[in-house]
C-alpha cells in the first residue's frame, strides 16, 4: 500500500536541467491543466545554498486572469499563505521564493512550496468561476430582488411560443405591459441572439414584446455590434461598476413602465 501511495504521489515527478538550475514538475495540476512546478536555483548571496522559486509568473498570471491582489482581503490572504509556507514574494521580480536552504532541507521545503503553489492556484479557480458567472449572477439577483412580486419572472424560457429558437436568460411579465426578454451580454453570441430575437419577432411573430441586453462592459464588443444592438433593441444598459443601480432601474422601467419604478 505504501509503495502504491508513493507511486501515486511521486510517479509524475520529473526533473529537468535548465540554464538557471533545475525545473521540477509535480503530479499536481492547475485548473488550466498545466502542472504545478518549481525551480531549484543557486542562492545568489550564499554559495552552496539553494532557493526554491516559482517561474516568476504565478502572480502576474493570476492578475491577468482577473485576480485583484490590490484589495485588502486578497493581499492579506496571499500574505498569510506565504507566511504559513515560510516563503516571500519579491514584488520587483514578481517571484515567489523560499529563504536560502541547504541541500538537506530541500526535499521537505519542496513539499511545503508545492502546497503553497497549489493553494495559490485556487485564486485562479475562484476567479474563473467569477469571470463566467459573477456579472450574470449579480445582475440576476438584483433584478429578482427588485421585481419579485411586481412581475412574473421566468428564467431560461422562451418569451413566446412563436419564438422558440432563442432562449432569453430572463423574461419579465408585468400586468398591462409587454413582456421583456433579457439577455446578459456575456459574449458577442448572446448580443447577437438578442438582435436575432428582435428581428424574428419583427418579421414573423409580431408579438408585443421588448428585447433588452444588459452589457457588463461595452468595450468587450466591437463598435459595430454595440451599434446594431442599440439601434434595434428596446434598451442596451451597461452594468458598469459603480453604476449598476442605474442599469437595473433602466430594465425595471422597461418591465413596469417609467412611472412605477421604486426609488
Amino acid at each position: 500500500m505504501k509503495e502504491e501511495l508513493c507511486k501515486a504521489f511521486c510517479g509524475d515527478l520529473a526533473v529537468r536541467q535548465v540554464p538557471d538550475g533545475l525545473a521540477v514538475r509535480t503530479g499536481f495540476r492547475r485548473p488550466d491543466g498545466d502542472a504545478i512546478g518549481f525551480f531549484v536555483v543557486d542562492d545568489p548571496v550564499y554559495p552552496g545554498l539553494f532557493r526554491l522559486e516559482d517561474d516568476g509568473g504565478t502572480i502576474p498570471f493570476l492578475e491577468a486572469c482577473g485576480v485583484d491582489f490590490s484589495t485588502d482581503a486578497r493581499k492579506a490572504a496571499l500574505q498569510d499563505l506565504l507566511a504559513e509556507s515560510g516563503a516571500e514574494f519579491d514584488e520587483l521580480e514578481s517571484t515567489i521564493r523560499t529563504k536560502p536552504l541547504s541541500k538537506e532541507e530541500l526535499p521537505r521545503a519542496a513539499m511545503t512550496f508545492v502546497a503553497l503553489l497549489l493553494r495559490s492556484s485556487d485564486f485562479l479557480l475562484l476567479t474563473q468561476e467569477r469571470v463566467v458567472s459573477a456579472f450574470k449572477q449579480d445582475a440576476a439577483e438584483r433584478l429578482r430582488e427588485r421585481l419579485q412580486g411586481r412581475a412574473v419572472i421566468e428564467e431560461n424560457m422562451p418569451v413566446s411560443a412563436r419564438l422558440p429558437e432563442v432562449i432569453p436568460d430572463m423574461v419579465f411579465r408585468a400586468i398591462g405591459r409587454a413582456p421583456v426578454a433579457l439577455f446578459f451580454g456575456t459574449t458577442s453570441q448572446r448580443v447577437n441572439d438578442a438582435i436575432f430575437l428582435q428581428m424574428a419577432n419583427a418579421l414573423e411573430a409580431h408579438d408585443d414584446l421588448a428585447v433588452v441586453t444588459l452589457l457588463e462592459n461595452e468595450g468587450m464588443f466591437s463598435r459595430d455590434l454595440v451599434s446594431r444592438a442599440m439601434n434595434r433593441l428596446a434598451s442596451v444598459p451597461v452594468y458598469r461598476r459603480g453604476d449598476e443601480d442605474a442599469a437595473i432601474r433602466r430594465i425595471e422601467e422597461e418591465v413596469l413602465g417609467r412611472h412605477t419604478t421604486l426609488h
Binding site: 520529473a14 529537468r16 535548465v18 525545473a23 521540477v24 514538475r25 485548473p31 488550466d32 491543466g33 498545466d34 502542472a35 512546478g37 518549481f38 525551480f39 517561474d55 498570471f61 491577468a64 486572469c65 482577473g66 485562479l124 476567479t127 474563473q128 468561476e129 469571470v131 463566467v132 456575456t186 459574449t187 458577442s188 453570441q189 447577437n192 462592459n217 468595450g219 468587450m220 464588443f221
Partner: peptide
C-alpha cells in the same frame, strides 16, 4: 515551460463569438 513535458497550447476550438473578453485564461 521548463516544468512541462513539451510544447503545448491552451486554446478554444469554438467560434470567437463565444469567447469572453478581458481574461488571459478561463474555463
Amino acid at each position: 515551460h521548463g516544468t512541462e513535458p513539451g510544447w503545448h497550447c491552451h486554446l478554444t476550438c469554438e467560434s470567437v463569438t463565444t469567447v469572453p473578453a478581458g481574461a488571459m485564461r478561463g474555463p
